[in-house]
Nucleic acid binder design. Structure first.
Length: 139
DNA sequence: GCCAACGTTGGC
DNA sequence: GCCAACGTTGGC
């Protein structure tokens, strides 16, 4: 099972908003970047991903899972753009801040550090375990 | 709110 | 096909 990271500005759509969507989850629409789209095309049902608050917050706050495979983005007629649906799984007991990630030598290769602009990122198994441990959360 | 970094666009 | 100009993102 692969792991990912979804970024969102909490002022626009934060963790609480995802939790409020419950089992049905939320269409992760609005992504207009090929790398991010390709990552979503690679996702399988049940893949899990970190939920990261960008711009305000700057921390990973919980774990989400993919509950619908990539499908056309309903917010555009442009058929290049696709998205998955995700739903909240569990919050982190302790949010893991960008500072914590940057100061942990084992996480220096995370895409979040290397290419912070990419809004949907892959996360390696090793990174997944380390961040979950930092967040005091079951992987 | 600023601005560096990045991706995309479009003129040539 | 190159690359300058532009728009957007996100950390600070």
């Amino acid at each position: 099972m692969a792991h990912w990271l979804f970024k969102s500005e909490p002022d626009v759509f934060g963790w609480d908003a995802l939790v409020a969507k419950g089992e049905v989850g939320e269409e992760w629409d609005g992504v207009r970047n090929y790398q991010a789209r390709n990552n979503m095309r690679d996702m399988k049902i049940g893949d899990t991903g970190f939920f990261y608050h960008s711009r305000t917050g700057l921390e990973i706050v919980g774990i989400a899972e993919v509950c619908a495979l990539a499908h056309p983005d309903s917010t555009t007629d442009d058929d290049r753009w696709e998205c998955v649906d995700i739903r909240a799984v569990r919050p982190f007991k302790t949010p893991v801040s960008l500072d914590m990630i940057k100061s942990d030598g084992r996480l220096g290769e995370m895409v979040l550090v290397k290419n912070s602009r990419l809004s949907v990122q892959p996360v390696t198994d090793a990174e997944w375990k380390i961040v979950c441990a930092l967040g005091q959360t079951i992987p």
